[in-house]
Amino acid sequence: MANYSTNEFRPGLKVMLDGDPCSILENEFVKPGKGQAFSRVKLRNLKTARVMEKTFKSGESLEAADVMDTDMQYLYNDGDFWCFMEPDTFEQHQATENAVGDALQWLSEQDVCVVTLYNGSPLSVTPPNHVELEIVETDPGLRGDTAQGGSKPAKLITGAVVKVPLFLDQGDLIRVDTRTGEYQGRAAAK
């Protein structure tokens, strides 16, 4: 793989650090007028999601990580693995529970997700920003109470639990922002 020097560090660049693939979040150039130049770099470890800060001497380099973000369709779960497919090539990839991580609670079959491949196998899965899911369990709805005010927990078909307004009922379809886990509104029945 190629090497990237500190002056090529940009947000989103994927590099290897201490044997793990990392994504660069920020790179700040620091230099005393007469002194050595540094790069203060914030990185996220793509395996552990941990964010760390490191300082490099200007001109130091890191190896590029063989990491690629690819849009893939979620097909099914066979009990051990979650299966995703590249829509163009129909190539299928098996993701472990660890790689699917928190995305698990939002995934419906056929959803198009961003699957991050590291050395060709799924490292992490990012669900669509918005999903539409059915409520399977919640306290009975209070009809007419559509004004602002209270909320109640509702369990969705994928297992996620979100806060919803009181008037919603079991069987209702809602729209959720997966980045915040927040209820966005009712969705039209499919």
């Binding site: 002194g35 050595q36 300082t55 001497k57």
Partner: peptide, 17 residues
């Protein structure tokens, strides 16, 4: 301070950092 390998740096570079 740098949380990275700086063990072989010169006096001046360490002070700057």
């Amino acid at each position: 301070a740098a949380s990275s390998a700086w063990s072989d740096e010169s006096r001046g570079n360490c002070l700057d950092l």
